[in-house]
Design a protein around this nucleic acid. Sequence first.
DNA 1: GAGTAAACGAGACGGTACGTCTGGTCTTAAG
DNA 2: CTTAAGACCAGACGTACCGTCTCGTTTACTC
Lengths: 211, 211, 211, 211
Amino acid sequence: MTQNTASRRGRPRDADVDRRVLDAAWDLLHGGGYAALNMDEVAERAGVAKTTLYRRWPTKDHLAIAVAARILGEVPIPDTGDVRRDLTDFIAAQAASLGRLRLAGNPDGAGSAGLVAELAAAAARHPDIGALVRGLFARRHDLARARLRRASEREGLRRDIDHEVMIDQLVGPVWYQILVTGGPADRSYAERLVEAVLDGAFTPSTQRSKS
Amino acid sequence: MTQNTASRRGRPRDADVDRRVLDAAWDLLHGGGYAALNMDEVAERAGVAKTTLYRRWPTKDHLAIAVAARILGEVPIPDTGDVRRDLTDFIAAQAASLGRLRLAGNPDGAGSAGLVAELAAAAARHPDIGALVRGLFARRHDLARARLRRASEREGLRRDIDHEVMIDQLVGPVWYQILVTGGPADRSYAERLVEAVLDGAFTPSTQRSKS
Amino acid sequence: MTQNTASRRGRPRDADVDRRVLDAAWDLLHGGGYAALNMDEVAERAGVAKTTLYRRWPTKDHLAIAVAARILGEVPIPDTGDVRRDLTDFIAAQAASLGRLRLAGNPDGAGSAGLVAELAAAAARHPDIGALVRGLFARRHDLARARLRRASEREGLRRDIDHEVMIDQLVGPVWYQILVTGGPADRSYAERLVEAVLDGAFTPSTQRSKS
Amino acid sequence: MTQNTASRRGRPRDADVDRRVLDAAWDLLHGGGYAALNMDEVAERAGVAKTTLYRRWPTKDHLAIAVAARILGEVPIPDTGDVRRDLTDFIAAQAASLGRLRLAGNPDGAGSAGLVAELAAAAARHPDIGALVRGLFARRHDLARARLRRASEREGLRRDIDHEVMIDQLVGPVWYQILVTGGPADRSYAERLVEAVLDGAFTPSTQRSKS
DNA sequence: GAGTAAACGAGACGGTACGTCTGGTCTTAAG
DNA sequence: CTTAAGACCAGACGTACCGTCTCGTTTACTC
């Protein structure tokens, strides 16, 4: 419907190309990190011409981000009625996503930020990637804020809490561990984060923060 | 004291070289970001041979980190007796440091992580840089934890607070803003962060957390 | 014929590149000898990327030899029916070729072997160049031997002459003069060489060797 | 006698340094050809500072030539009363000398000119080396010419022979084989060369050139 | 024996070219 | 119009190695 005659001309795009390319790119990234992601190599492994590559992803960075997006996937915030648990799941899921990227080209995974830093740099180099990524995280924050709003309304979360900051203090430390300190960012760390922000965040009558 | 006879042999290193090189490198970084940091250019501007460059910094990444270290400088945590104020200063100082880097090659400074992401990537590419950087931040955290300990002892900070996590929740969001969301990381943001973590963190009798 | 379909793929090589590069390289060699042959400079002058250079000539030495081959050119051995004259022309032509190379970067031209020695060294450094050069001279010798055979059959050259050695004794001294003694290698020298080898080389009845 | 007071001042040169350095240099040259001759490596192996090296040999080329001179040694022309034999010995000795150099960094020794070409190039690069080498060969030629003169006087060598050219036609082909064609240059080749130049070079009454 | 001159060891330094790598564009022919 | 193939441009990187320079040290001769 969209394109009747105008773009019906010529050879149609091979739909399988995307998959083959992203697979090849991920293999390289996984094997040796960003430094191992080589456009010529990707083209060869995917059985695709470089022209084709560049027609779909204008830049190596764009391709890398596309690969990462596929790996990271969506991180929805659940709503079971238990904020503590929902937030923990939310943060743990994000930590797990980043952890997968951290492992690329980094077998033991400890210490190095691995791919994550390179992707952040890629976003910094290209305004369009940056905007895309920031949009993604803005939407994620919107959902989280909505969840916190519901917690205020239904679960006794104090009304004077700065939701914006609370989310930053949950998500930020995870990135910080991965990108800077190299420390662990696993579920138990997520639990400690949630514990800390929710400690004293409920109105006394409704719920206690700590046993 | 460190090197009495062993390394007294041979022509001594020219102490001025470091300064000239780091200056030149910072000029380039400041002007055009990481992409503008060119080893040949640095050598030429500093009036130094490339061999000399590589004798002292084995890699362009190492040089960049050295420049950044000089720019970032030390961020001591003050101890005025007022934790809230000390923490705010501490965080605001770090935010300001990162902000300076973010501006490199990025006149308007909004949105992009600029140099910061590139430097994180550089640290991730070289295990030795990573170790160095992590050591730096580990020491910084040690100081901060010591400050929090004193707050527990003298200023009524609750004893059951997870100091480790509290620091992460102060520092982490700053990096997160700079590297990921592109949001502002200024003094007022630091104040909100400190406010949030100290809210309810004091024993009722001693000090009030919020007016 | 060699490559019908196999190498018909992809963008064909630009035939003009060779000319531009060899011209630029010769300019440099001519102006300052082997030391002045600079790959970056060649690339710039020829308006060509260094990758293109190295795709065609894997080494600076290979390029230099290619330039020399163009300068030296073919040295056919004539067949006018007069061996003495033909050999003299043959030797004088080779001497003139080498003389041109000797002058490169060596205005007065006396004494120094100039480029010739450097090219010999280049051939010695790379087995493939050595093989190529030796093949070239082997073909040249074949032609010369054929000419001597005809002289035996038609011009009364003695049948017991060692053609191989005779050619070496004509060509060898020219190289020796250029590479080692620094002496002149001109037409009159060629005449003396030919005179010496043909002296007494003819059967008495047919031709006299010396007036 | 040469230096009484002027250079008697200060610490005298260590006579053992030359030996150690030349040994080390020859080891490198022998092992990997001219490309393997590395001044830093020579200094280290000889247990000598680079300063000392350059005080004695102003250039790597000078050092290489010094090594070669030691290897090549003197090639006197004998005078047994039998020109044919003397010339053969003379040429065979030179061929053997060059053959030794050809083997450096060139185990099988066939084909490549090995060090010889590099040394010729070295001589071409430095006027002083060139002059020295040409002087050496000029003296050698003088001796050879003197021998031929005696052959004219005592052994019936024809008076109209061009001695200069005859020597070139004996020595030149040896260098030509080594530097250009890669062919063998052994005693039997020397015999063929001598045979050719002496064939018909004697006055009929006195001696026959060939059996 | 103190002074001095030069050789020496060690290693930083300047200079410069090399060959490599890789990102991204362009030109063919084929589908 | 897309695809494959591969030549091409651009430009930085890190390396290699030569020859110089700058120290501090050692070894003689000289006064």
